[in-house]
Design a protein around this nucleic acid. Structure first.
Length: 527
RNA sequence: UCCGGGGUAGCUCAGCGGUAGAGCGGUCGGCUCAUAACCGACUGGACGCAGGUUCGAGCCCUGCCCCCGGAACCA
């Protein structure tokens, strides 16, 4: 049998500072996709990592009195700690200082060199002795003609030998590829940007630097190290065996989707495909450039970019501790369109949490289970022959699920969650209001039992629909009754979501404290 | 300056050719199983400005104003 594979990656991060909520946004968005694809039955490989071969890393390490390698290893540990806390289900985490990456990079650059796409040229620019690196025009402008980090030192104009990649030669092939694969760049707006960029100006890029000890040596000229993007982008192939395990590489590559920030779209959609073409490798199927999270300034109401200088950076751990990882995931996936930009403020976060999680999901969990305990001691008995679709009368659940499935598959998470909450979650509150099981219980136990069995099925359905987004809550919901005996939680899929469990009996298996289910999402003060 | 995105209810946004929508907020009423949660009703908008195309325009075209982002080491 040909097993369906799905290889998904995120951008690798600079370990100069700890990850913030914007970085986390990307990882969660990718994680939802990975979890969704696993539910769809694909064999998923989900890669993340850190981009460590930069000069800045060595500077930062030196500041802390460390060697580069121990420093990046510690940062990688810290990053992964955050990712684990956010329930990111990556299968691998590559550090570009690892040998597997170095080996793959050397092989790759040699292949491109052999293909005739690398030539020696001269790089001229403003060089800062303090930083031991060239400064961009932007840096120089910011520093008022001097290096922003060393305002007391003069910049020197320096020219040095450097290797260039012949990116400009790939203009037509890139445009042809975009035309032949309309889905290659997502979302649409990003695609248009790249096409016009490639049409108008595609320059050759500098890909090596001279005189650095940290980084990857260029095999055909050992005085040089591979520079920035040429190195970083290669993590996608080196992590799955390029240059070290060709059999595995052939099995895994090409990636199905690279999930990246909109700012680096050009490198992934122009430079990267050109590099792959040159090396004779297949291109990734899709690049998804997600939007940014801005911080809403609660005093001015302005949306600001997250930055250290504005002092508005929020660390994921802060929110995880105050709320929970699930709340964190819920907020960003439901409030910030993945393809566009989103906004964050503590107030909005608390509002969304209280409304979506505490008042709706969490409260429903409590009220349903409480009634089952109160009226039936938690044992609803056999569901044989019961109509468990009453709760969703007026709802075309199979059609809705198909739509949600399509939306999740194309990263339209806000819309998918909106439908789940607006139509599926709400339906339970309305169903309870209509059937009034708390009144029925006094007069008609059997009718009450049917209503509660329906609500149990609602919990099963919701558990499946939210699984990619809120894995923990999903498991809790699914485990609230003994559904898992018949259909294991690990094996549920959207395809099975609309089919009730029609045999056996329903029994409350949720943890009970003092005769009551513990609140899943305690309400918080919105301040 | 150039490129891109956007300006729709108090807030966040959907709608992209056919009688202005949702969530949150606010007001009133109902219910009591539940995390003062839930249900219902109501409230609330010259869809940035000015022209144009069309039987008909937030939705298409033109011009203008304003906001945001980018312009090749930034998630």
């Amino acid at each position: 049998m040909d097993e369906q594979r799905f290889y998904i990656t995120t951008a690798i991060d600079y370990p100069n500072s700890r990850p913030h909520i914007g970085t986390a946004f990307e990882k969660i968005g990718a994680d939802v996709q990975a979890r969704f694809r696993r539910m769809e039955g694909a064999h998923v490989h989900f890669l993340m990592g850190n981009d460590e071969n930069t000069h800045k890393v060595t500077l930062r390490a030196r500041e802390l009195g460390l060697e580069a390698k121990p420093y990046v290893d510690d940062m990688a540990r810290q990053f992964q700690e955050v990712w684990r806390a956010l329930e990111i289900s990556n299968d691998d985490f590559i550090q570009t200082s690892e040998e597997r990456h170095h080996a793959g990079c050397r092989k790759f650059i040699q292949a491109v060199y052999d293909a005739g796409d690398i030539y020696k040229g001269v790089y001229a620019g403003h060089y800062c002795v303090g930083c031991e690196s060239f400064k961009t025009e932007k840096d120089v402008a910011e520093g008022g003609g001097r290096c922003p980090n060393h305002p007391n030192a003069e910049l020197t104009w320096l020219e040095e030998d450097i290797y260039y990649f012949r990116l400009s030669a790939y203009r037509d092939r890139l445009l042809a590829h975009y035309a032949a694969h309309p889905d290659f760049i997502q979302p649409e707006s990003r695609r248009n940007e790249i096409i016009s960029l490639v049409e108008t100006e595609l320059r050759d890029v500098a890909i090596t630097r001279k005189g650095f000890a940290w980084g990857i040596r260029v095999p055909f000229d050992e005085d040089h190290t591979i520079y920035v993007w040429f190195d970083a982008l290669l993590n996608y192939v080196t992590a799955v065996g390029y240059g070290t395990d060709e059999e595995r590489f052939a099995r895994t590559w090409p990636a199905d989707v690279h999930v990246i920030g909109k700012d680096i779209t050009r490198f992934h959609c122009a430079l990267w495909p050109a590099m792959l073409m040159s090396a004779g490798l297949p291109l990734p199927k899709k690049v998804f450039g997600h939007g940014f999270v801005y911080r809403k300034n609660e005093e001015t109401g302005e949306a600001e970019k997250l930055s250290k200088s504005l002092g508005n950076v929020v660390e994921p751990m802060e929110l995880i501790e105050k709320f929970s990882a699930e709340a964190f995931r819920y907020y960003f996936m439901s409030q910030c369109p993945f393809g566009g930009d989103g906004e964050f403020s503590f107030e909005r976060f608390a509002d969304a949490y209280n409304s979506g999680l505490a008042n709706n999901l969490g409260n429903l969990y409590s009220r349903i289970l409480t009634m089952c305990l109160k009226y039936f001691q938690g044992d609803l008995g056999s569901v044989e022959g019961l109509d468990l679709t009453a709760w969703r009368r007026g709802l075309d659940l199979p059609a809705l699920i198909e739509d949600v499935r399509a939306k999740v598959g194309e990263f339209d998470y806000t819309a998918a969650l909106q439908r789940i909450w607006l139509e599926v979650v709400d339906s339970a509150n309305k169903y309870i209001q209509e059937t009034q099981p708390f009144k029925l219980a006094k007069t008609d136990p059997e009718a009450t039992r049917v209503v509660l069995a329906n609500l149990a099925d609602w919990m099963r359905t919701v558990a499946i629909l939210i699984k990619p987004f809120l894995p923990q809550t999903s498991e809790t919901f699914y485990g609230a009754f003994d559904f898992g005996d018949g259909r294991p939680w690990e094996a549920v899929s959207y395809a099975s979501a609309a089919t009730p469990i029609a045999s056996g009996s329903f029994r409350v298996t949720a943890p009970i404290v003092d005769g009551k289910p513990a609140p899943l999402f305690p309400k918080v003060e919105a301040r």
